[in-house]
Each structure stands twice: as structure tokens, then as C-alpha cells.
Amino acid sequence: MIFDLLLVAALLWSAVQALTTPDLFRAVVLFIIFGLLMALAWARLDAPDIALAEAAIGAGLTGALLLDAVAHLHKKRREQSP
């Protein structure tokens, strides 16, 4: 139960941080951390299937997509203001 409460606190903290951090890159990294914590939460909820999918898709692939979008955004910014 203590582990559950700690995990829940970490989940909420990473979600708030991902939504409010000024730097976009940091926000995406925090979101990936949030995804990995979600995978842990699924494992605690006796749902190993979802834990596997969340770790691979929710954290991994979504993270790759978002990081790629941030990189694209920074490149555009550089092109606009050389």
C-alpha cells in the first residue's frame, strides 16, 4: 500500500510537471517518465498485458513521436530566426 501511494504521488507529480514545465523538451521527457510510471501502475493492478503495451507504446513510441516533433519545431525556429 505504501508503494502504491508513493507511485500515485509520483504519477501525479510527473503529470503536473509535464503540463507546466516551461521548456518543451523537458515536458516531453517528463511525459515519457509518466508513461513508464503508468506501466508500473498497470503491473500493480494485475494487468501485465497493459503494462507491456504501455511501456512499449505509451512511453516508447509516443515518446519517439513527440521528441521528433520537438526537434522539427526547433529546426523551424532556427530557420525563421537565423
Binding site: P48, D49, L52, A53, A56, I57, G60, L61, A64
Partner: peptide, 17 residues
């Protein structure tokens, strides 16, 4: 046991990326 098409597909996609 836990596993199946979704997880296997995700691993394949990870390999592609």
C-alpha cells in the same frame, strides 16, 4: 500468458524505429 498481437506489434515497431 500475458502477451499477444498488440505487444508483439509494438516490439516490431520499436525495431523499425
Amino acid at each position: 500468458r500475458p502477451g499477444g498481437a498488440f505487444q508483439a506489434g509494438a516490439v516490431l515497431a520499436g525495431a523499425g524505429v
